[in-house]
């Protein structure tokens, strides 16, 4: 096996992006459904995690249902300050993801905090540290969250 998923790896990834059974021998149940061997399924998943094709294998949590909060935010960062501002956000633990995007609002990040009140405090901390105004885009409604990708 290499760091590139083969056809069977892709089949496993596509079949396993949800619905992993909650039974005593879940890998055996998956293996049966796909016509594979239990230990081969376990070995392939372990390999895919090890080489980083899978970030992890397990439950995906909904932070908000666990009392936490997340909020998409954006900054319009002057080009000459872009790297410095990115470094400031990299050091703030409340910033979970940060992406450069092509737009006047050129830096898009997600704040994740343990409580809803923490979001406003974190947004203000970003403003204090950068001197820039944080555009806040809290989700008002979620239509679907598939997060499935075709391997």
């Amino acid at each position: 096996m290499t760091a590139t998923p083969d056809a069977l790896d892709r089949r496993l990834i596509n079949a396993l992006q949800g619905g992993f059974p909650i039974v005593p021998r879940p890998f055996a149940a998956v293996a049966d459904a796909l016509g594979l061997d239990e230990d081969e399924v376990i070995g392939r998943i372990a390999h895919l995690v090890e080489v980083g094709i899978l970030s992890r294998f397990g439950p995906m949590l909904d932070a908000e249902r666990l009392g936490g909060a997340v909020c998409l935010c954006a900054l319009a960062v002057p080009a000459e300050r872009f790297e410095a501002v990115a470094a400031i956000l990299a050091d703030l633990p409340a910033v979970a993801h940060n992406y450069e995007r092509r737009h006047a609002l050129n830096m898009w990040f997600v704040l994740a905090t343990e409580t809803p009140a923490g979001i406003e405090a974190a947004a203000r901390a970003v403003e204090a540290a950068t001197g820039l105004t944080v555009a806040r885009f809290p989700k008002e409604r979620e239509y679907f969250i598939g997060m499935r990708v075709e391997a």
Binding site: G19, I53, S55, P59
Partner: peptide, 21 residues
């Protein structure tokens, strides 16, 4: 099972790294 039914766990399974795919 309860955490899945309540939505606290969205799903259980493989979480792919988009870039690596």
């Amino acid at each position: 099972e309860r955490l899945l039914a309540s939505g606290a766990v969205r799903r259980i399974g493989a979480v792919p790294n988009h870039y690596r795919l």
